[in-house]
Amino acid sequence: MNYPSRTIEEAVSEISKLPGIGKKSALRMALHLLKSDKQVAHSLSSALVNLVENTTFCTECHNISDQSICQICSSHRRERSIIAVVQDTKDVLAIENTGQYQGLYHVLGGVIAPVQGIGPNQLHIDALVERLRKNEEVKEVILALSPTMEGDTTAFYIRKKLAEFPIRISTIARGIPVGGDLEYTDEITLGRSILSRIDF
């Protein structure tokens, strides 16, 4: 792609490094910023620098936070006897958007994936064990991990690590999505849905 100036080429190159953004989308964004008031670009760059410089991780749950203890962990409205174990912050946001869960979280920072060189020691699994040792309030841990081979491996490993605690360990339900057709559902999901059936 030929660019009219080196500055636009540099901007497109940097913007296209973001996930899900190709060169054409990056060019559209760069041209939009160029046509906009300069304050728009300055506000964007300021917000990005602030994001990188001032974002930290909660010392309790390892979720992204502005302070050492995040808003969820410090809230008195949350149910402190339940902890949902999730892969990353995106999963926290997804669950929070349902409005159905009022417990706490524990963000692992990934899942066990030997092919990618990610082992249990690189995740916040030991921090979860320590958290449970210090907090006798916790009565249930929900393993809210994606139903993939890596997610299931991680859940199995965590289950073994938490065997010493007298708590309930559950997992999120897996079944047919609302609006889905049975004929297009894979056999494993359909089988689990039958086994995990609920009263009508």
Rank of each mutant, 00 (worst) to 15 (best):
I118R: 06
D199T: 10
E137A: 08
L132W: 02
H76L: 08
L44A: 09
T7M: 03
R6S: 10
Q71I: 13
A113P: 03
Q71G: 13
H42W: 01
S68C: 00
I188K: 07
C73S: 06
N121F: 13
I15K: 06
T154R: 04
F200K: 15
H124A: 12
E9S: 13
L27F: 03
L31N: 12
L27I: 02
I21M: 13
E137H: 07
D152G: 05
H106D: 05
L27E: 13
A11E: 04
L34E: 03
R197G: 04
A155T: 04
I176K: 07
N121H: 14
E137Y: 05
V138P: 13
L34H: 08
Q71C: 06
N135Q: 05
G179S: 12
K38E: 11
Y105I: 01
G180V: 08
I188A: 11
D37K: 09
I172K: 01
I188L: 12
I72F: 06
E96F: 05
T185A: 08
L31W: 14
Q116T: 05
S193H: 02
R78I: 05
Y101K: 02
V92K: 02
S68N: 09
E150K: 00
A26R: 09
S46A: 08
G117F: 08
V107E: 10
R133W: 02
Y105A: 00
V92L: 07
V141E: 00
F165S: 13
Q67N: 12
L27Y: 03
F57T: 13
K160N: 12
H62Y: 15
G180D: 12
K35Q: 13
T59D: 07
P4G: 03
Y3E: 09
A26L: 10
M149D: 03
L190E: 03
L128G: 09
L123R: 07
K134T: 11
V49R: 06
S68G: 00
K90E: 12
M29N: 03
I158M: 08
T185E: 01
R159C: 05
N2H: 12
H106V: 10
I198K: 14
S146R: 02
G175T: 04
I188M: 12
R197F: 06
V107D: 15
D88F: 01
R133K: 11
L104D: 08
L128Y: 14
E183G: 07
Y101P: 12
G109Y: 03
E53R: 12
L48W: 01
E14P: 01
I118H: 04
I82L: 15
Y3N: 11
P114L: 06
L123Q: 07
Q39R: 13
T185V: 11
S5H: 14
Y157D: 04
I167R: 09
I176Q: 05
E96D: 15
K24Y: 06
K134E: 09
P4F: 00
R197N: 08
